[in-house]
Computed example of a mutant assay.
Amino acid sequence: MKVFGDMQSGNCYKVKLLLSFLKIEHSWQHIDVLNAETKTPEFLKMNPNGKIPVVVLDDARVLTESNAILGYFAENTPFIPTDRYAKAKMYEWMFFEQYSHEPCIAVARFINKYLGLPEDRLVEYQRLQPKGHQILAIMEQALHQRDYLLGDSLTLADISLYAYTHVADEGGFDLSLYPHIVAWCARVQQQPNYIAMNAS
């Protein structure tokens, strides 16, 4: 099995993190988005949307979209609740991650970390800050009285949101303002088979 991605991308890292937690063997193929490696004819055959991550299974079937990939590999594992309501709440957080969290936290980080905060995107970067803090405040409140987003155990909700949250400072967001998030990040990092984003 091959995974095409960039470990510095939260959307790719969340896949790498789950595969590490589950000890699933795979070959990691680095893709440089800044050099348009997602726009080559070869890549577009795998994912016409031109985005990472992409998983090519052993039988050559292809999976795209990070949270869909998480769902595929976590099926029948403790990372997906069996209770119907709890599972819906997990997906609620995962939709929140893609539609509310990622467009603020991840984009601000991309502008700063990947692009070096260019002047032509400075206004956009500044506009993302208040919304990003609103998103982090929602997570802080949710983690106020529980260890993980759904309660006392790690689920895909945590894995999907951890990826960009734990490096939110690289997008200009001071995580010291959110002690419950900081403690939650530490709990994720203490999980067996945890792998850091900067791991080779």
Rank of each mutant, 00 (worst) to 15 (best):
Q29N: 13
N49P: 10
W184M: 05
Y162V: 00
Q190D: 09
Y72V: 11
V62M: 11
V56W: 12
M94N: 10
Y72G: 07
A186Y: 03
L154G: 00
D6I: 08
D32E: 10
S27Y: 10
C185E: 15
N11R: 11
Q29E: 13
H26T: 15
L115I: 14
Q190P: 00
S176Q: 00
L154Q: 04
P53N: 08
N49A: 12
E92A: 12
L44C: 15
S9V: 04
Y91M: 11
L22W: 10
H133Y: 12
Y91P: 12
T165D: 05
N49M: 11
Q145Y: 14
C12R: 00
C104V: 01
L175K: 00
P81I: 02
P103A: 00
L143E: 05
H30E: 10
G10D: 05
A68L: 09
P192H: 05
A36T: 07
G151H: 09
F79I: 09
A157W: 05
I135Q: 03
S27D: 14
T38V: 11
Q189I: 02
L117E: 08
K113V: 08
I52C: 04
L117A: 11
Y13R: 09
M1N: 05
T82F: 03
G50R: 05
L156P: 12
G10C: 12
G116I: 11
L17V: 02
E65K: 14
L161D: 09
E119M: 04
S66L: 02
H26A: 10
G50S: 01
M1A: 11
A88I: 10
K87D: 03
D147E: 06
Q29I: 14
V167I: 14
D174Y: 01
A68F: 02
S160N: 02
K2T: 07
R121T: 04
L150E: 04
